[in-house]
Each structure stands twice: as C-alpha cells, then as structure tokens.
C-alpha cells in the first residue's frame, strides 16, 4: 500500500483550473520530488494533501485513509504524522528559535516544555546549529539559518511524512547544497516518506528517489531520479535543460 495515493485530484480557483486530474502514488520510505515551473500547481498539490486546501474532486489517501472528508479534529491527529518545511520558513516570529523547533511537541503533542527543550536543541544540533542560536529570535537569523531552523522544526517530532516546499529557493548554491544534504540525511535517519516540490534541478537530483513532473495541472512524467536525463519526454527535457524553446510556452505579454 502506498503511503500517499492521489487519484484524479482537481482544484480550480474561479475559472482558473490549477490541478486537472493528478494521479500519483508515493511509496513508503521513498523521497519523491515534484518538479515544474512557477504557477503549474505544485504548491496547490502540496496544500491539498495537507488539507490546507480542499480539492474540488478526486481522492487523497494517506496510509489508506481518505483525508479529503476528514473532520477537523480527525485531521488534527492525522497531521501528527507530518512535518513540513515551508518555502519562506514560516517561523513564528513571536517565539525564540528553540520554541519554534519545540512547537509541534509542546502544542501539538502536549509534551511538557521541560521535556521538549532538549529534543529541540538536539534537532538544532542535527542541522548544524549551536545551542546559543536557540535563544535568538528568527528575525536575527540569515535566510540559510532560518531554513535550517525550519528543517529542525519539521523533523523534531519525528514525523512519518515530511514535505519540503521549495527548500533551496533564495539560497546561495553552497547553502542550498548544505540544506539538500541535511534533507537527505534527515529523511534517511527518520526512515520517513518525503515529498518535495522544487524547480531547482540540482536539489531534485540530490534528494529524489523518484521524480514527477507537473505541467498545466497534470503529471506529465514520473520515474526514477536516475532516468531524468533520458526520460524521452519533451516537457522534462525542456525543463531540465532550461530551454525557452519547446512544448512549454510561457505567456509573455508584448506591447
């Protein structure tokens, strides 16, 4: 049984159809990366699985349980399986770094702050941050450090499933590679199932077991990461080589 299974998922905003029937299976313990250009529906796909958006039709199952029809309190307990690294970090700026990392344990799992604090510092150490960072405010950290703290928060509660939303966007190549290494290491150590969305091919090659490409709200190719360079799919070829010419057309308004 796949860890996450999507069947013909659609989602529109007004007249704009963002997802046009996504079907994919994410096996347990594997790292799946969805690649695709901006505005192709990657983030909407992630938000539909997390329940932050309700799909218009289709089925989303996690461990065989249909999640599109869950009541809010059932969803709250389902979310305990998840960790999520947001594109902008989404750290709580009213809390110091260690409380951000411990948040899921203290508020979500009702662990005492005394027990959660060493776990938070341990998670910070795993992403290469020292103890003194724990007392800083998120606003005092660089972009790369914020991503690391967000990663520490995502893994602190030892989730079964981790989502990464554009984990390397806005980072310099070296910091991006450090984050990629940390993602691979964290997912491997936890034995978690990972779903990432990115348009950074270096990141996708590094963290993926399986790559799927989304275009115009549909999965146009899916296969092992090692096959990406000889996929035989013209959309994938154009995307990974970053060519302006090809079947993917950008709407450019000319005056």
């Amino acid at each position: 049984m796949p860890k996450i299974a999507l069947e013909d998922v659609t989602k529109s905003f007004g007249s704009k159809k963002v997802l046009r029937g996504i079907t994919m299976k994410i096996p347990a313990g594997k790292s799946v990366v969805v690649i695709g250009g901006s505005g192709t529906g990657k983030s909407v796909l992630l938000k539909c699985i997390l329940g932050l958006l309700k799909p218009d039709s289709g089925s989303i199952k996690i461990d065989g349980v249909e999640v599109t029809t869950l009541h809010p309190w059932q969803r709250e307990s389902m979310m305990r399986k998840f960790g999520m690294l947001f594109q902008g970090g989404a750290l709580f700026d009213s809390l110091p770094v260690w409380e951000n990392v411990a948040f899921g344990l203290v508020q979500g799992k009702r662990t005492s702050r005394r027990k959660a604090q060493p776990i938070a510092y341990d998670a910070l150490a795993k992403v290469g941050l020292s103890e003194d960072v724990g007392l800083l405010s998120p606003a005092e950290l660089s972009g790369g450090m914020q991503k690391r703290v967000a990663l520490a928060r995502a893994i602190a509660s030892q989730p079964e499933i981790i989502f990464f939303d554009e984990p390397t966007t806005g980072l310099d190549p070296i910091t991006a590679d450090v984050i990629n290494d940390l993602i691979v290491e964290s997912v491997h150590n936890l034995g978690a199932t990972a779903l990432s969305i990115t348009h950074d091919m270096a990141s996708a090659r590094k963290i993926a077991d399986i790559i799927a490409m989304i275009y115009d709200g549909k999965i146009v190719w899916q296969g092992p990461a090692s096959d990406i360079d000889h996929s035989g799919n013209e959309y994938v070829d154009q995307f990974i080589h970053g060519r302006a010419q090809g079947p993917i057309k950008l709407e450019v308004k000319r005056s």
């Binding site: 997390l50 709250e76 979310m79 947001f86 902008g88 709580f92 700026d93 899921g104 508020q107 979500g108």
Partner: peptide, 21 residues
C-alpha cells in the same frame, strides 16, 4: 502577517488549530 507568511499554515501542519491557538 501570519497568514501571508504561511505561519497559520505552519500551525496546522504542527497539529495546532489556529482557532484555538
């Protein structure tokens, strides 16, 4: 600000109801 910086979405993914918190 929490909404536009995805902090409210982060609350949900950390099993915390934004309404209660």
């Amino acid at each position: 600000t929490m909404r536009v910086t995805e902090q409210i979405d982060a609350l949900v993914t950390l099993s915390t109801s934004p309404f209660k918190y």
